[in-house]
Design a binder for these strands. Structure first.
Length: 323
DNA sequence: CCAATTTGACCAGA
DNA sequence: TCTGGTCAAATTGG
C-alpha cells in the first residue's frame, strides 16, 4: 500500500483524536462511580451519560476511520475530488454512529440525465450512518446537518413501515455538486433514522480543500457553535448570587469548540464547563435560566469560586445547551 | 416571484 | 414485472 503523505497525516489525526477521546473517557471513568464532587450539584455533572456515549462513539469512529484509511486508501485515491477522500462523515448533530459504517463506491443507477456524467457518478462514494432524533426537536428535521439539501423524492419501500426520502444538494445545478442523501426511518426504533450519503459535497458549503488535512474538530460545526456562543455573549445578562449585576459579563472561552457531536438533548438550560470538569480548582459556575425577565435573557449564576479572581485566568469552554 | 416540497410518472436494473 | 431511484409538473410557502 502506497499511502500518500496526506493520507498518513489524516490517519495520524484520526488516531490522535481517538486517543484523546479515550483518555478523556478514561479520566472520567476513573471518577465516575464516586458521588459527584461537592462543588457540583448532581444536575451540573459535566459529563452526562450521553456525553460519555458521545466520547465512546468518537473513539470508535476515529478508529473505524483509521482502519478504513488503512484498508481503502488506494481505493479512495480513485476519486477525482480530493474532498471525497477524507472518509469524514458529513456533519450531523446527533449521529449515533458518527462514522462510516460502510463506505463503498456505488454504481449509480442509470437515468437519462446521468449520461452526461455517468462515469463521475459511478465513482461517487457511499456510506451510511444512523441518527437519533432528540425529543425536543421532535420529528422535524431529525436529519439536519450543516449542508443544505433539497428533497427531490419520496418512496414507499417494500417491507418498510416508513417511506424513504431522497435529498440532493441544493447547489447541484449552480455548483454542480452531486452529493445526495437518503433518509429512512427505522422500522424497529422510530427515533432512529438511517442516512445514506452518496457523493461528497463539492459545493462551497462543503469543507474547502486545505493544504493540510484537518479532520477534527469540524470547523463548520465549530463556527456554528461559536456563533451561538457569540450571540449568547452579546445578548446575555448575568446576575451573580452575590448581588452583582453585570450586563457586560464576559465568559472566557477557549475556541475552538471541541468537536463533540452536539447534544442538545439535556434540557434544563444549564451550561456545562467542559474545559474544567476535571480541574475543579478552576472556577465553575452553575447557570440557570431566569424566566422572569423580558426580551433580554438573564441567567442566574452560582459561582463556587470568586469569579472576579479567576475569571481572567481560567479557560473555559461552554457546551451550548440552549439559547 | 422564486425556491422548496410534494407526488405521480418514468426509467433502468434485477 | 417489480422495485428503487429520479424527474418534473403542480403546489406550497416566504
Amino acid at each position: 500500500m502506497d499511502m500518500s503523505n496526506w493520507e498518513q497525516k489524516n490517519l495520524l489525526s484520526e488516531l490522535v483524536h481517538g486517543l484523546k477521546a479515550a483518555k478523556q473517557l478514561q479520566a472520567e471513568l476513573g471518577t465516575a462511580p464516586s458521588p459527584p464532587p461537592p462543588w457540583l450539584s448532581s444536575s451540573s455533572l459535566c459529563l452526562t451519560t450521553e456525553m460519555r456515549e458521545t466520547l465512546l462513539r468518537q473513539i470508535v469512529s476515529s478508529y473505524e476511520k483509521a482502519i478504513l484509511m488503512l484498508n481503502g486508501s488506494n481505493v479512495h485515491s480513485q476519486t477525482a475530488n480530493p474532498v471525497a477522500n477524507t472518509g469524514k462523515v458529513p456533519e450531523s448533530p446527533t449521529s449515533i454512529n458518527g462514522s462510516p459504517r460502510s463506505e463503498e463506491f456505488i454504481d449509480g443507477g442509470g437515468s437519462k440525465d446521468y449520461n452526461l456524467s455517468s462515469k463521475k457518478r459511478k465513482m461517487l462514494p457511499k456510506w451510511t450512518e444512523q441518527v437519533r432524533i432528540s425529543p425536543e426537536r421532535g420529528l422535524e428535521g431529525p436529519h439536519e446537518d450543516v449542508f443544505s439539501w433539497r428533497k427531490y423524492g419520496q418512496k414507499d419501500i417494500l417491507g418498510a413501515k416508513y417511506p424513504r426520502s431522497y435529498y440532493r444538494c441544493t447547489f447541484r445545478n449552480t455548483q454542480n455538486c452531486w452529493a445526495t442523501k437518503q433518509v429512512q426511518r427505522s422500522d424497529d426504533d422510530p427515533t432512529i433514522f438511517d442516512l445514506t450519503y452518496k457523493g461528497k459535497h463539492t459545493c462551497s458549503q462543503g469543507t474547502p480543500p486545505r493544504d493540510k488535512p484537518d479532520t477534527t474538530p469540524n470547523t463548520t460545526l465549530i463556527n456554528y457553535q461559536n456563533d451561538l456562543l457569540a450571540n449568547l455573549r452579546t445578548n446575555l445578562s448575568v446576575r451573580t448570587t452575590n448581588g452583582i449585576e453585570s450586563d457586560g459579563f464576559s465568559f472566557p472561552v477557549t475556541p475552538p469548540f471541541y468537536s463533540y457531536e452536539s447534544d442538545y438533548g439535556n434540557g434544563g438550560g444549564t451550561f456545562c464547563d467542559m474545559g474544567n470538569y476535571s480541574r475543579p480548582s478552576d472556577f465553575t459556575g452553575l447557570i440557570s435560566t431566569n424566566t422572569s425577565t423580558g426580551s433580554s435573557p438573564i441567567f442566574d449564576v452560582d459561582f463556587q469560586f470568586d469569579p472576579t479572581a479567576e475569571i481572567n485566568t481560567g479557560l473555559h469552554t461552554f457546551l451550548h445547551d440552549s439559547v
